[in-house]
Simulated scan of single mutants.
Amino acid sequence: MTMPSFSLAVLNDAPAAFRGAVLAIGNFDGMHEGHQAVLAAAEAEAQHLSAPCVILTFEPHPRSFFAPATPLFRLTPAALKASVAAAHGISGMLVARFDAAFAATEAEEFVRAVLVEKLAARHVVTGYDFHFGHQRRGTPDFLKRQGVLNAFGVTVVDKHGDEAGAVSSSRIREALREGRVEEARELLGWDFSLVGRVIAGDKRGRDLGFPTANMALNATCGLRHGIYAARYTRPDGSVHDGVASYGRRPTFDNGAPLLETFLFGFSGELYGEMGLVSLIGWIRGEERFDSAEALISRMHEDAAAARAILAARPQRDLDRRIAAAWPRVERQAEAAGLA
């Protein structure tokens, strides 16, 4: 699948082509349906103005900066966030390094130095709850006034929700903590996915007849331990059905959590590559078995269950475009020091 050109860069190295763009600004952790409403409004304005449409976001997440002792279960690291943006046809994503100096920047200075002087923004789009600048003094109404003073347009997108309330990253995190990946999928609008580098394991899975691609995820990952139907995207863009286990392997070592993905019908080497694991359905919680034989029997049942789930839930168009965009965007993230 051919994807439109997309550029991922840190703000200080913003491509010259992004001057005069329509900017969608926010943290966008999750790139969920509410965030996608902001992107849609920005895309519409960009088409109207015949301008590029660019996301401006922040790393690390401001909550992680201000409360480093409180772990934050991140839904979308920079490369995955950018992959969803690319799948929507956005021109690129700029990442502002959120450090002490940036946190101390007054809202007026952010508008002057970043939006006006550096990026010459033609139009800015944010969500209804976006705040920026020192002590969060930059409110949506403040941004609208600044737009009038500095000759750029401003659109503030209203709350996007359902009968249970606003779609939010917090709701998605809570669903994932309970293994409800189907609910997370509905709130995201795409299959929740995890990114990691395949590491060498103890080869126990190979001995059991289920060789796996093992990934050590960020320690803040709050995903429920258990077994999931999954799809695995390789750096070459190929997508493979499989079954994934996330947890501590209580039958054997009860060690540090690992994401272990068994790819159906695959026999090549995966060590060292970055992989994208998309979770399609929940199968069961993590269990301790009395013997390897009992575990193997259950693993065959899990594989059959995963095949049935995957057959019933083929890749949707957005998921297909995310998978197609991810390998190239991941390489850009590594080059920019954002992986």
Rank of each mutant, 00 (worst) to 15 (best):
L318F: 11
L217M: 09
A166K: 10
V277N: 04
D290L: 12
A184H: 01
S64G: 12
I322R: 10
E183G: 14
A305I: 07
P327F: 04
G20C: 02
N254D: 15
P327N: 09
R122E: 11
D13V: 09
T220Q: 10
S193K: 04
I309Y: 11
Y271D: 14
L187W: 10
G147R: 03
G153N: 08
A96L: 13
A219S: 12
R316T: 15
G222F: 08
G179Q: 03
G201M: 05
F130R: 05
A78N: 09
N254T: 06
D191M: 13
A323M: 02
T70A: 12
A304V: 03
N218A: 15
D191H: 07
A69W: 07
L8D: 06
I25W: 09
H32L: 12
R331C: 13
T57K: 01
R122G: 13
A14L: 13
F192I: 05
M1P: 10
E273G: 07
W190K: 05
F262R: 03
E182M: 00
D158S: 15
A256M: 14
A333K: 03
H134N: 12
G196F: 05
S245A: 14
V167W: 04
S267Q: 11
N218M: 07
H160K: 01
L259T: 03
L56F: 08
S168F: 02
E334V: 15
V116Y: 05
S7P: 09
A41P: 02
L295A: 06
E45T: 14
D29L: 03
G201F: 04
E109P: 12
H35I: 13
A216Y: 10
T261Q: 07
S83R: 01
G161R: 00
D317C: 14
E108I: 06
Q315N: 15
D290S: 14
K81D: 08
T126Q: 03
